[in-house]
Design a binder for these strands. Structure first.
Lengths: 77, 77
DNA sequence: TTTTAATAGCGCATATATGCGTTTAAAAAT
DNA sequence: ATTTTTAAACGCATATATGCGCTATTAAAA
């Protein structure tokens, strides 16, 4: 988290998550409910504030009905 | 981490990481050095003891010279 | 404009990942 | 058999993700 490149990476991850969520017309609230995690968590991930874990990524992918790989399908810069 | 499925998932992730590392004939030590993370961390991830973060996954992928997606390219069960 | 919905953003406690070092065990090489 | 390499498996301090609740802000709808 202290690494500049890492911060860019988690920001990109969050942007990609948000994009996918919006493409499915889901609110943060609905995604949070489906993934069974707090809505505040979704927000912090999308804003790139936190360096989330693979288990959280997995439940998000399941809730979005996509593969985990798709959540990592973005350009690093 | 308290969820049974999550434990299975992080175990599978670790097994996949180990497989990829061995396929490249790299020791945990060399991978740790290249990724600039402690060797103990590599072991704990491969053994499925910890639910690692996306930034760690990213540096591992870079050190292995593969995409992050490849580290998630395994069957969930 | 007023109401409603959606998101941002904060605070706080707890759980856990990380980072670093050390010891033990097993396997491979000599 | 001994040495060397590799990985497992501890312990511990620190940083941070999570979980929960709440308020503020923004945007959209009425």
């Amino acid at each position: 988290m202290n690494n500049v490149k890492d911060i860019k990476y988690i920001k990109k991850f969050g942007e990609n998550l948000k994009q996918i969520r919006l493409n499915k017309n889901l609110s943060q609230e609905v995604l949070a409910f489906t993934a069974d995690i707090p809505i505040s968590q979704i927000g912090r991930i999308e804003r790139g504030e936190i360096n989330t874990t693979i288990s959280t990524v997995k439940v998000l992918a399941e809730a979005l009905d996509i593969s985990v790989k798709e959540l990592f399908d973005f350009e690093i810069k």
